[in-house]
Write a protein that binds this DNA or RNA. Sequence first.
RNA 1: GUGAUAGUAGCUCAAUUGGUUAGAGCACUUGGUUGUGGUCCAAGAGGCCGUGGGUUCAAUUCCCAUCUAUCACCCCA
Length: 451
Amino acid sequence: MPKINFKKKNIKKDGQMKDNGKRKRRFARLRGMRDVLPDEYKYWNLVLCKAAKLAETYSFNRIDIPVLEQMDLYERSSGKTSDIVTKEMFSFVDKSGDRIALRPEATPGMVRSYIEHGMFNLPQPVKLFLLGPLFRHEKPQSGRYRQHNQFDLEIFGESNPAADAQLILIAYNFFRELQIEVQIQINSIGCEECREEYCRQLVEFYKERGKRAKLCNDCKKRLAKNPLRLLDCKEAPCIELKEEAPQIVDSLCDNCRNHFIKVLEYLDELDVAYNLDPHLVRGLDYYNKTVFEIFPLNSEDQGRQISLGGGGRYDGLVEQMGGRPTPACGFGIGIERAVSQVKEKNIPIKENNKADIFLAQLGEQARQKAMVLFEELRRAGFQIREAFTKDSLRSQLEIANRMGVKFSLILGQKEIMDKTILIRDMESGIQEVVDCKKLILEIEKRLNNGK
RNA sequence: GUGAUAGUAGCUCAAUUGGUUAGAGCACUUGGUUGUGGUCCAAGAGGCCGUGGGUUCAAUUCCCAUCUAUCACCCCA
């Protein structure tokens, strides 16, 4: 005998059918996007404040630039062959047929802004910082989102190696003061001339007796297109080969070598620890001379090294983008990654939004009076909270308790008639009737006693 | 873009050899107390068992696809 299978979801307890004719659609978050909820925002505040404070100290001025730019901007600056441009851009054609991209990195937009607003007429160097979102259409992973925020610093119009060193110092301070241990990897990839010379050496090296055959397929392509990227490969045979490959530091011209040595000297003097990494090359076309990257320092290493930030010098970019010849350098730090490090370290966070007083009311008339009183007390400078939409005293005291206030003021019909108010000590539960006129004095007395 | 694992309530997780009302803890709402929080007690609400298709009398359970998440690669912050 077949049994009829009624689905429970269609039947209410009383046996009536649910009205599921129109099912409401629930919207899901887009892939790789995140909501930052209040619980997490305390960590964000910590990180964001540290960033803004440091930037200010080193005379960087905050700017905001659009999230949308012309796609060409990135193609011409970051490089048409770079991963960021070729496969990671959120791009589209808008209603007027323009090719648009959501910014995948900050520097090109900053350069555009510098040129467009004639900032070369300002006293140089121009030091700017940006806090905001970037977009990359990658496959999401831990610590990697399609929208992420960066703390981005740029110095325009300064060729002095002290500028490079200062950027690294700021990054170093940023993490150290957030109690995150980091490791700084640094290298110099020289200027166009010495890089060209180096690439020639590198290609020659790999062409020697059968080395080329050992390379992975990607690297064979790199050898022809962008030999520098050979140093970045993580395939075992390629790593083995590159150990013996010529190092770019040895091919630097005098100018570039001196610049690099100066940067390192400043860092030594400032006691900023760094590792020279002769294989560090960055994925963007515009870098020259100093390049650096920051990694967390994990004693028990879990294999993957996730970068917390990186940057370098890009002396040719401003001119290439149509501006005057302008030396420049900059770096970016991933806010989400910094936040996740802070959370991991369980750094205690002081609650700065703690209140002293809660004002409870009972009855419509009392509610009106209480709303007025609340404004008075707030203007008098007290840290006060309320829940005027609640009716019962019970739920109001429950909220007061959750907020951890020291006292609750209770205003009801009886108190209004007597022109008094109740002060309840939340710890002891002791209540006192106080004359309304003396309220401020009485509160101050109690708050000061607590100290 | 490639590969691995997973998806049940807001959260953390049970259960099902395919079967009739899918459970718990925390959180939430209400009441016990029509003017008193933290503890306690009671009740309530909350589930397209990720989505779509297939097999079956019957699928949350089996199969396929897909989406999403996590992890690794690529690359990066």
